[in-house]
């Protein structure tokens, strides 16, 4: 495997299993990241608390819990409060991306589909 312990820890919360699996593969083989996937929004917070990631990629539209709910749970807890969140969304219009300045509810976001190079840029920019 390409996984190298010691890289930046990324948690991706998204119900699309194929997507999270490929993101994990693509990020980890750069050698820069250690990725954990979580396909259930409801577990997003607890997984984050246990994994202590350096950044969370969070799908906005999850079937069992809205991404914004997960984000507020994270914000309410001392342990996860300062973890940067990057939202992932499929339903935002280009015009809205332009108008929002790339920020939803104070968090940056990425519109799906995204090229891995672009994703890495955003991750590196937002990682603490």
């Amino acid at each position: 495997m390409w996984e190298k312990k010691g890289g930046k820890k990324i948690l991706i919360v998204d119900d699309e299993e194929d997507f999270t699996k490929l993101i994990k593969l693509n990020l980890e083989r750069t050698g820069k990241y250690e990725v954990k996937t979580e396909n259930q929004g409801a577990f997003g917070f607890t997984t984050a608390k246990a994994f202590k990631p350096d950044l969370i990629l969070l799908d906005i539209l999850l079937p069992d819990a809205e991404g914004s709910e997960v984000a507020s749970q994270l914000k309410d807890d001392e342990a996860t409060r300062n973890i940067p969140i990057v939202f992932l969304t499929a339903i935002i219009a280009k015009q809205e991306v332009k108008e929002s300045g790339g920020v939803i509810g104070g968090h940056p976001f990425i519109s799906k589909p995204v090229d891995i190079k672009q994703l890495i840029e955003v991750i590196d920019k937002n990682i603490s």
Partner: peptide, 24 residues
């Protein structure tokens, strides 16, 4: 539109990641 965007873009996102994987 929202429904189609969600249902089409997610597979597109997966295909994109798959292509990113194959690129290397």
């Amino acid at each position: 539109a929202s429904g189609v965007a969600h249902e089409v873009r997610n597979p597109l996102a997966i295909i994109m990641q798959g292509l990113n994987y194959l690129e290397d």
